[in-house]
Design a protein around this nucleic acid. Structure first.
Lengths: 316, 316
DNA sequence: CTGAAAGCGCTAACAG
DNA sequence: CTGTTAGCGCTTTCAG
């Protein structure tokens, strides 16, 4: 009897107990599907990632799944592989299952085309904002990431600062660069050299480190667009006789734990708060499902994780 | 009308077309939930991971999701965080949603307690086999991984072979070690030193590399239990004046692309075929749902990916 | 406060 | 071949 199980309707405490006991004994489990048919909602959301759960979407998903699970909502997992056909397929299937909403995530922080869903189905974009500014998007505050890194260098007294990062066509790369420049400008200084745009991997870090040192042997601090780049840069510094952090301080980005802590010295890095992005996205989606729509792009503040590459008192 | 949409029952081609057209025009989407209530199954499975989607469970999940999606089955995502309470909670919720089955995965290859589910609900274990041998488990063939690495070293003419790997309490570590020993024994030789059990990270690799070189300066090949260990070992080799692969050849494990390819030289590594594990697990689950139960532990063959750390003709 | 009845959207079986 | 009906398991409403 649903009245007993849900405590709804009018029923006496006595019979309620009796029914509950009987249910427990029988091992009765209500069929949530049937309830969903009646309620016209499924307490279920679809999470669509475009990038096969690379290291960026995973923390976002985890944060989202966590927040959603607390609201007793289950999560459907979909890997669209950046393929519009697959994406449409998943949307169709999940709408057939009457999901209450969608969270869309992916690797890049560049804008993406909005999802085409049944009108009334809420969608929240995490990490990759929707091109439609009236959609709800949660992203990393990349400018703040650059600023934080710059301020930390200034605070530790470094002044000959350089920046090595990913390809220029990534919004994230350009915004971090401008955040860093802003921080330096606010202190009346500027980058020792134009930003080195290139790639996100170790190899680019090594190359850029060498180029940088050749052009500016007196560099004393380098902000890197990823932890991998930072490792590559660090390797090249050591090879060319520079000590990290004494001669050159290094800050990475991502706080990819296993990479950052495995480095020698462990990397100080800007944690972009991806699981926070996921958590907030989930909350916004829950709000939207409850009828409280959010609109616009919300930027999540990153934070600095200090380790040996900027702190000589820390681990070697 | 369901007859038209599903092509079931008896209906003329004419009216069928007419109904289909009307449905397309209206944008009609059948409610799969209602169908599921009737069918008593949901075309949905639960994927439970114990380890928050570390790099081991992600490829497994991807492989599984891929195979399941082809069978038009959606996947519920659950992160139990190795917490029995959370696990039970997820199982209850998903059984309430009448999932057709479960796939359980996690980081370690050690056996785990079987899931407690409603009788009749199929469960397949991926990566972490069930303690119950009548359950269906798909795992990596770790002994084969060790064998493959050993045979590759022998083939390239190395004979003073060592092994640095993770903690001894991991089944995977011990089995790879014994597989490697078997391969050497088959060629009438043996390890130059007892297996170095320790950890899975770079730091352990560096330590072990130093210890190894001190005790056995003439070592010419090292099989490592993870790509991170291999990187650590490689770093220590170079620091102590050994060239990789000329003086010492290196094989890692996992084929964690970004780590293996970012190394200098890029790492030859044993790919443990995790997405294959996931794919097969999904197929076995589909079979079980269809009434064809599988039982026992199935081992998936790993394969070698050759890069510069064993091949001096390759990248430097 | 209780039990019966109607309906959520679908499918199968059934007369017409 | 067609349209109607009963029923999947649940919740809500409405007489008793």
């Amino acid at each position: 009897m649903s009245k007993a199980l849900n405590g709804t309707g009018q029923i006496s405490a006595g019979t309620r107990q009796r029914i509950l006991a009987a249910a427990a004994e029988t091992g009765f489990k209500p069929n949530e599907l049937a309830r969903s048919v009646f309620e016209r909602r499924s307490y279920t959301v679809g999470m669509i990632t475009t990038d096969s759960f690379e290291r960026f979407s995973v923390p976002v998903m985890l944060g989202a799944e966590d927040a959603l699970g607390a609201g007793r909502i289950s999560v459907f997992l979909c890997d669209s592989r950046d393929d519009p056909i697959r994406e449409k397929h998943y949307i169709d299937v999940l709408q057939g299952r009457r999901v209450d909403g969608f969270i869309v995530t992916g690797r890049s922080s560049n804008v993406r085309q909005p999802l085409t869903v049944e009108p009334g189905t809420p969608v929240v974009y995490a990490l990759t904002p929707s091109a439609d500014p009236t959609d709800c998007s949660i992203v990393v505050d990349d400018a703040a990431a650059g600023r934080i890194a710059g301020e930390h260098f200034l605070r530790m007294g470094r002044s000959r600062i350089a920046h090595v990062t990913g390809p220029e066509h990534f919004d994230a790369a350009r915004e971090r660069a401008s955040g860093l420049q802003d921080a330096l400008a606010a202190a009346g200084t500027s980058l020792i050299a134009p930003t080195f745009y290139g790639g996100w991997g170790e190899e680019w870090g090594r190359q850029a480190g060498q180029m940088l040192l050749r052009a500016h042997p007196d560099v004393d601090a380098i902000y890197c667009g990823s932890d991998l780049v930072a490792r590559g840069v660090g390797d090249s510094m050591r090879e060319l006789g520079r000590h990290v952090p004494r001669d050159v301080a290094l800050i990475g980005t991502d706080n990819w734990e296993i990479v950052a802590t495995g480095a020698r010295p462990p990397l100080t890095t800007v944690d972009t708060g991806l699981s926070e992005v996921g958590r907030i996205a989930a909350e916004r989606l829950l709000d939207a499902i409850a009828g409280r729509q959010h609109a616009g792009i919300e930027r999540v503040a990153p934070h600095l994780v200090i380790r040996g590459s900027t702190d000589s008192t820390g681990a070697a």
